[in-house]
Nucleic acid binder design. Sequence first.
DNA 1: AAAATCCTCCAAAACGTTTTCGGTGAGACA
DNA 2: TGTCTCACCGAAAACGTTTTGGAGGATTTT
Lengths: 346, 346
Amino acid sequence: MNKPANIREVARRAGVSITTVSRALNGYPDVNEETRKRIMAITEEIGYIPNAVAKSLVTQESRSFGFILSGLIRGSKHTIIQECLCGIYAFAREVGYEVTMFPVDSAMQLKKSYMQFSREHNLAGVILQGIRTDDEYSREVFSSDLPCVLIDIPADRNRVGSVSIDNEAASAAMTDYLLSQGHRNIAFVNGKEAAAVSTQRYEGYVSAMRGASAPLRWDYVLNGEFDEEIAYREALRFLPEHPEVTAAYCASDLMAIGVMRAAAELGIAVPEQLSVTGFDDIPIAAYTTPSLTTIQQDFFLNGYEAARMLYDIIQGKDVPHRKKTPHRLLERNSAGSIQGGSPLRT
Amino acid sequence: MNKPANIREVARRAGVSITTVSRALNGYPDVNEETRKRIMAITEEIGYIPNAVAKSLVTQESRSFGFILSGLIRGSKHTIIQECLCGIYAFAREVGYEVTMFPVDSAMQLKKSYMQFSREHNLAGVILQGIRTDDEYSREVFSSDLPCVLIDIPADRNRVGSVSIDNEAASAAMTDYLLSQGHRNIAFVNGKEAAAVSTQRYEGYVSAMRGASAPLRWDYVLNGEFDEEIAYREALRFLPEHPEVTAAYCASDLMAIGVMRAAAELGIAVPEQLSVTGFDDIPIAAYTTPSLTTIQQDFFLNGYEAARMLYDIIQGKDVPHRKKTPHRLLERNSAGSIQGGSPLRT
DNA sequence: AAAATCCTCCAAAACGTTTTCGGTGAGACA
DNA sequence: TGTCTCACCGAAAACGTTTTGGAGGATTTT
């Protein structure tokens, strides 16, 4: 394993100092065009590649976004983090940055804090996703002066940015949609309580129901933990107890799928007897029978915008630290109108 | 933005040399227990974090796997690379490595070669996935002495490792399954020609058909390019022309879904009139109607095993450079028996 | 003709570590 | 008393860059 050529070797062959080589390669003006050509030729010839590690060490910057995320788990059924990662990379490429991932597994004993990770790698800034706000490590990041933007987590501090859809508005929109179809008794299957998006979506549901003077009953909101199986079991229990509810609005597609399975098992027809709607628009949502009416999020865009905001913060630009990405209500086939002539389940 | 503390600061406060600090922190034996305690305390107090960049520079190794992959694109409907990445991280954590991703986009003008990337970052070795073998940059990697393992690409050189399922056997198994259900006229929807897995799956199909003396016709193999839409259009053309074929075996789930959609549009019932099978077992496959009979691959395991093999190669262990991960035929509802009483389409 | 300017280049310091080699003092052994 | 061993520690080199602060010569300006 012979060592790769370094700048010294190039300098030696070109008969110049390493300073000149460095300047030539980095496009500084004060180097003779002829010398530059010669250096370039030698660089090419011996396959010299500047060592980014050494460069990063001396310049004290890494041109690298950190991406700290939880939820990179085996057997995941959605592509959310994939999309997000892809968006981050898309922007990073535009500005010549790289990205360094740090997946944190809730199961793993976290011996390394986010901060430690960031400093070890001279990260220019970090993007956090799927991280709990009450986590001790995130506090450490918030209170540091490391540029930082959050995805799907509201930022309380002013130094840190955040990007997400307007969860409350989207949630209200979905509830309103169901209401407009004639539904009154609408159950809401929520996700984990700890997640900020859960409370926001709950708020949206509540305000829409209240606005329409629809029955707002505590026993109409179920806890599905963002889990297909749990939502399935909850629905299995809930649906027979409440034949008067004609719609179940779920805070995630996976939970909606669980609810639809429960309905199928109970002999309840979707959407004829029960409308079911989801949230996220994961790939599966388009392929279920019936296909899922849901709120579409652009997770790619979330990643892209988060990276862009982080970049602006790093550059010291004065930029709004709150970005709402667009959402869209995707009307498919899992929800229908009550006036459509379909009998209520009662 | 005050600079983070460095080893010199710790040494100054502890009243020892930086050598001693380094030794204390890295667990070398020749440092007094009392001094070590003191150093640890100071480290904790001022929040000192060793700089991995500097360390990597001097040790000439980064304890980092490179993951070079193509196919990280917006709107992807499967979780293959996600699973793979997850597997790589799982192993990396076990051995205290990190992973550095390098997504290559076929659309992007690749101004940086894989080799350049690897050397820039002092990578210990790289894992390649979804990369074409005839690509100029992969040649560069193969012929270098950089430890390297390929996923889903057969390795011709002996220095490089490779991991994948036994595509030929799996493909033959699926074909045999269809044959055992009484099908004789089986179409095969293949993926991109450039992909190694395509030719292997084609071989499996051919040998199984040949073994059963089933009709092997060139016009029974379609080119779906691993694309749902293309497979859909191909099926739309092919199915009416060939009412005698009772089964379509597709080299990917997405193509199978495209074929099923075409069948639905043509009024052909699946599986009653046409059996359709896929390959991969992506999440969607379980949620289509009918659910997809397919070959299950463990992409997580692919990543995990690739990382393990790479690690062994880096360590200089003499280890088999070819690993076949298990596959499984998942019998769901998109394929049925001809004897089952269902009429042929003819 | 002297002075100022410009172009091209170089020596050396710096970034934050690890590692090699050697030094000091204390106790053990002859 | 002299030497050897051992535990502990430090000075300095090294990793491969970038950047600072000029130096030397040629060219232009005054």
